[in-house]
């Protein structure tokens, strides 16, 4: 175990750039590396990603492993597990961090299985235990009703996936130097057991949730897709995005991609307006990073009032029209 050293990150690439979660991993990775006096490395997998090495170094990596192969152009579970496991066996990192994204959620437990390592998913806080020098991962459990701190004891690497938008992103410093290592990423399509047939991008209407400054979400209390129009209208008025709770999605009032929460999108807008939703912790997990939460609910006991900054108790059908009327007047000024 003592032969394992350093911190390795699994990078993600989005539209030819390092994904926001990767810049966040570089931020926390640097902090942990400095605390333990270890090296920070990052693995970039793709078809043509070498150009991003400089960026990764500027954001704080000491070493960049580049694994290029046409088969890695998009995330492929079998291929990426092979490449990342191979690197872990050679580089022997003590800590391995990934994003708790669609990629990291798939890759991390496979690596934990293949490397017989230890994993804690969906971290919102990472620290080093002063006594043992081991990683302490704090993660919401029971839908966010509790927080558990987890340590990996007997095995290596200590793997964690980090929830997006919970740690401070790294700052860029283009004067930083480091090492770039090209790996031989030998993945033959014949060794891939699962074949990707098709990737379908589903366009969400309006503003993207992740980028929005304002998000308006409706819950089960909205009652119909017709009533949901009011949520859309309010979002348009504030140039914001439309979110939803899981029941609202499952009722078919709005596509699944709009779901906010632990198993949906994580948003952190300036303003989050929660309409006719009870504020279950699994939902709040997706919006608790919002600067200001406004709740509209007819039940004064609803949990949402325990996390909101402003609230109105009443029927949204009466509240929203009056609210929008006044908003229009104020925004015109």
């Amino acid at each position: 175990m003592d032969t394992h050293k350093g911190i390795l990150l699994c990078g993600e690439i989005e539209k030819g750039r390092l994904a926001p979660i990767t810049v966040e991993l570089l931020g926390i990775g640097r902090v942990l590396a400095d605390k333990t006096g270890q090296e920070l490395s990052i693995l970039l997998m793709g078809s043509d990603v070498g150009g991003l090495s400089e960026e990764a170094l500027a954001y704080g990596a000491d070493k960049v492993y580049v694994a290029e192969n046409p088969l890695l152009e998009h995330y492929h579970s079998d291929a990426c597990t092979m490449v990342a496991a191979d690197l872990c066996r050679k580089a022997l990192p003590s800590i391995l961090l990934l994003g708790n994204t669609d990629i990291g959620r798939d890759l991390a437990p496979r690596l934990a299985g293949r490397l017989q390592a230890g994993l804690a998913t969906d971290a919102v806080e990472l620290d080093i235990d002063p006594d043992t020098g081991l990683l302490v991962v704090t993660r919401p459990v029971f839908g966010g009703n509790a927080l558990a701190s987890v340590m990996v004891r007997n095995v290596r690497p200590q793997i964690a996936t980090v929830r997006p938008k919970t740690v401070k992103p790294a700052e860029k410093d283009t004067s930083r130097q480091g090492q770039v290592i090209r790996m031989v990423a030998e993945v033959a399509s014949s060794t891939l057991k699962v074949q990707v047939v098709e990737r379908v991008e589903e366009k969400v209407e309006g503003v993207r949730l992740e980028d929005a400054e304002v998000v308006v979400s409706g819950g089960r209390g909205i009652g119909s897709s017709q009533n949901y129009e009011m949520i859309w209208e309010l979002a348009r008025l504030l140039e914001g995005a439309v979110g939803a709770t899981r029941p609202a999605c499952e009722e078919g009032w709005i596509p699944m991609l709009h779901q906010v929460g632990q198993t949906g999108k994580i948003v952190s807008p300036k303003l989050y307006i929660a309409v006719a939703l009870s504020g279950a912790m699994q939902h709040i997990a997706g919006c608790s990073g919002s600067k200001c939460i406004v709740a509209i609910n007819q039940d004064p006991e609803a949990n949402i009032f325990k996390v909101a900054h402003y609230g109105v108790v009443g029927d949204f059908k009466e509240i929203l029209p009056a609210f929008m009327g006044k908003l229009k007047e104020l925004l015109a000024k």
């Binding site: 994993l119 704090t138 509790a146 927080l147 987890v150 007997n154």
Partner: peptide, 10 residues
Amino acid sequence: HTEIVKLSVP
């Protein structure tokens, strides 16, 4: 492989 070292209610 893993151990819960602390459990709390936020």
